[in-house]
Each structure stands twice: as structure tokens, then as C-alpha cells.
Amino acid sequence: MLSSLVNVLDRLFRVLLALLMATMVLCVTWQIVSRYLLGDPSPWTEELARFLLIWIGLLGGSFAYHVKMHLGLDLISAKFEGRARFWHEVFVHLLVIFFAATVLVAGGLSIVQLTAELQQHSAALGVSMSLVYCSLPISGVMLIFYAVIALVEAVRARRIDTAVSAAEVKS
């Protein structure tokens, strides 16, 4: 059940990130064409590219964490073995959950609420800035979800390793 949910989320994430990237590439390409070939730069493309980059960076970071492609979180763990590695991984996942809950979710919801109350809109596109800032709590929730999955997997792997070690000692 949980693995099927994770698989569905992974597929959605891949498609969403690919669409965001494709949109950003088209947007930047249009900016170049309109600026250098037409001589009249499009006023909205730079802002849209910036907003897309924010969403891609935050959502992509949480997805990279899930697929263990986030370089910074694996560097130190790789130096440990056995029990020390397990406890280090647990510590890192708990730290990620804490950061995501406090900074991304709580702080993100706070800034989304503030910009919605102030009715702050972007200059070129005229979209509500709260939509742009929604990337913070959404990526935070995804990061928490993926960190909990990683914790469960680490505990399961540790139990299997412990059971195998106990069986080897008995034989």
C-alpha cells in the first residue's frame, strides 16, 4: 500500500518536474528570441523563469532527497559502518523532518498567509505571490513524507541485518 503510494508520487513528481523544466526552457528561449531577434524583450519571461526555478529547486530538492541523489546528505553517512551508520542516518532523517516542519512548512505557511493577506502580486505577471511561496510548504510536506519513508526503510533494514547477524551467530 505505502510503496504503491510512493510509486504514484514518484511518477507525479517526475512528470511535474519535467513539465516545469520544459516550460522554463521554452520561456527562456522565448526571452532570447524576443530580445535578440525581434529587438523587443518580453517583459514577463524573466519573472516566470525565476518563479519556475524556485518551484523546480524546492520540489526537485525534496525528490532528490528521496532518490538519494542529494549529495550533502550522503557524504558523511558513507564514512560510517554498521550501527554508527544506522544512527547517523536516523539522526539525519530526523533533522530533515525538523527543518522541513519548522522552516519550510511553518515558515512557508506563514509567508503564504502574509502575502495573501497583503494581496501582494508580482510585477510582470500579476500573479499572487502566495502562489509562488506555496512551493515552500508543499516541498516541506513532501520532504517530511520522504524522510519518514526513509526512516521506516532504515529501521526495516536494521532489523533484517540484526536478524541475519543473530542467525549467523547461532549457526
Rank of each mutant, 00 (worst) to 15 (best):
R50E: 01
T23H: 06
R50D: 00
S34C: 05
G57N: 09
I56P: 01
L19N: 06
L9P: 02
K68Q: 14
L58Y: 12
P41S: 03
M69Q: 15
K79P: 00
L26E: 02
K79Y: 11
A22T: 10
M21T: 10
L71C: 03
W30E: 08
E81W: 14
H70Y: 11
D10I: 00
H70W: 08
G57I: 10
V67K: 14
G61Q: 09
P43L: 01
G39F: 07
V25H: 05
W30I: 11
V15W: 11
F63P: 01
P41M: 01
A22W: 04
Y65K: 09
D10F: 02
L52Q: 01
P43Q: 03
L17M: 03
L26I: 12
V33N: 07
L71S: 05
E47M: 03
G60D: 04
L53G: 12
A49F: 02
L75P: 01
F51V: 09
I32K: 08
A64F: 07
G57F: 14
A84Y: 12
A78C: 04
I76D: 08
S42P: 00
V33T: 08
L12Y: 06
G57L: 11
L19S: 06
A84S: 11
A22S: 11
G39R: 07
L19K: 03
F13R: 01
M69C: 08
D40N: 14
D40A: 14
R35Q: 08
L37A: 13
F13N: 07
E46L: 15
L59N: 05
Y65R: 12
D74N: 15
R14K: 15
D10R: 07
W30T: 10
I32N: 05
